[in-house]
């Protein structure tokens, strides 16, 4: 048995032991009637990730690659980065907007203007993205022209 193989067995064994510990903690600390709620969250996470986000990202990736025939590589990269940042920030901030609208236990929880701040963020992101594209196109070295033979 090689050292790597021994490490593999050790890690998997340790991992299974920790899984068991997690199960025991769950059994002791959480009422079994609540397990169904946890299971729904797990299933929801897999459906939302593997079933929805995965295919949306797949589609966008494909569109981007198609677009790479006509649009310069760097421009696509910048647009892609802006899309990812916008999407992730939206995922983090929209629950704050929703929860603030529902109401909080006291005014010091979620005290900021999340909706307007997000709108400003989108605006800044759009401006910065446009500026980055303009800068890229300006600084870009022209594509090397293949030497003609004959």
């Amino acid at each position: 048995m090689t050292a790597v193989t021994r490490w593999r067995y050790a890690l998997v064994t340790f991992g299974i032991a920790l899984l068991g510990l997690g199960g025991v903690v769950l059994l002791i600390q959480v009422d079994p009637a609540k397990y169904i709620g946890i299971a729904i969250w797990f299933l929801g996470a897999l459906i939302i990730h593997d079933g929805i986000i995965a295919f949306v990202v797949f589609g966008i990736g494909l569109l981007m690659r198609r677009a790479s025939k006509k649009i310069p590589f760097g421009v696509l990269v910048i647009v892609q980065a802006a899309l990812v940042l916008g999407a992730l920030m939206t995922a983090i901030v929209v629950p704050e907007i929703l929860k603030k609208n529902i109401g909080t236990a006291n005014p010091t929880i979620l005290p900021l203007q999340y909706g307007p701040n997000l709108a400003i963020f989108y605006g800044v992101l759009a401006v910065v993205t446009a500026a980055a594209i303009a800068l890229y196109l300006r600084l870009r070295r022209p594509e090397p022209v293949p030497a003609r033979v004959g």
Binding site: G22, V25, L26, Q29, V30, K34, Y35, I38, W41
Partner: peptide, 10 residues
């Protein structure tokens, strides 16, 4: 639909 602290811990 579950207690946060205990579930987060487990």
């Amino acid at each position: 639909p579950f207690p946060f602290r205990q579930t987060h811990f487990a």
